[in-house]
Design a protein around this nucleic acid. Structure first.
Lengths: 203, 203
DNA sequence: GTCTATAGCAGGATAGAC
DNA sequence: GTCTATCCTGCTATAGAC
């Protein structure tokens, strides 16, 4: 049975992710949960406390789960192609409901838009470890010795695309004229990241 | 002489970009401008009206300016490399104060985090025309016939990196251990977008 | 642990003087 | 056009009954 505390965390995350911290009222959360307004203060010491608990108890564990999905999908011998595929799959095909993936992106987005004390937590404990993990895999995949800063920038470019294609999905739809299925996005990501524009260049 | 109306737009944009619509109060804006609270209602019909005016009168024109900067920097004969450089330069080296570039990104970010009636405006009149412009340039640069959907996805990947390196600059600093100057970011963007990871691949 | 009731405050908007 | 004064609404947080 899901207690009031857990329901507050779940509903709180939904609303914070959808509208951002300020835009959500404690009343709205407790009404949906079906409990009293005072419950938030009792369990979390206030609205801000609930928000931080959401990040700690729901967002961070999920971030770690995505990271593990990535690692789990790496198959040796490592190639750049396989690293890219593992990364894309971890984000888009992991056994996590689409709804949760959306929540996850969205909450990060909200925190970036209005940075608070949760941001350092999310960056350092959520994103940075993933970046390092990808860097390690990529270093192993590229046989040549690549300067580590070069490598990290490539990791950044990879993640940039993954996050962007998530965040700007509506714009993509408008730009293309149709809603591209995940499989095709992955295919493009792979092609672009591995060969870049020169894959299409005549010269 | 800058009238009250213009100052409200300028200060309003600063604050909306920094904190988001909800987080800013009319009182705060008018206090900084040095006018009365009622001025917002008089000139714009309310807080929301001021926000929309900011988007229309300041953000959209600036978006168009960036687009023109891009077009202006294209030199024939077009090559993919030159398109990438023109795009990066338009965003990072245009004769616009860094502060304004920051404002511009930030306001888009806020609107994406909490979409309102301004979002369609920003996407359709601000971003989409730029995307189409880049697509056109890229199509001319790539001699071979590239399916237009492929091309658009490449444009998306390009812009993804440009926006991401702007939004996540703090994370990049932490990841690299130093704050990368714009010139070096551009160099990487060019290398990655043109050749992808295979530029570093042994096989 | 969970509720009701309320304190205490801040925000947006408006009416009307000047 | 710009100001003062004020209304009304909605919020968080807390005190205290049960």
């Amino acid at each position: 049975m899901e207690g009031v505390r857990e329901r507050l965390l779940r509903v709180g995350e939904e609303l914070f992710a959808l509208k951002g911290f300020r835009e959500v009222s404690v009343r709205e959360i407790t009404r949906r949960v079906g409990c009293n307004v005072a419950a938030v203060n009792y369990h979390f010491g206030g609205k801000r406390g609930l928000y931080l608990a959401v990040v700690r108890d729901r967002w961070l564990p999920r971030a770690q789960k995505f990271r593990e999905e990535f690692t789990r999908r790496l198959v040796s011998p490592l190639t750049p192609e396989r690293v890219v595929v593992a990364l894309a799959e971890a984000f888009w095909l992991a056994p996590v409901p689409e709804r949760e993936r959306w929540l996850h992106r969205r909450l990060l987005f909200q925190e970036l838009a209005q940075p608070g004390e949760a941001l350092p937590l999310m960056l350092q404990q959520g994103l940075l470890p993933l970046y390092r993990e990808v860097e390690r895999a990529l270093a192993a995949a590229l046989k040549t010795e690549v300067p580590s800063e070069r490598l990290r920038l490539c990791v950044f470019s990879l993640l940039a695309q993954i996050l962007h294609f998530g965040f700007f999905r509506p714009l993509l739809k408008e730009f293309l004229g149709r809603d591209l299925p995940v499989e095709e996005i992955m295919e493009h990501l792979q092609a672009f990241s591995l060969r870049g524009l020169s894959g299409w260049c005549a010269s």
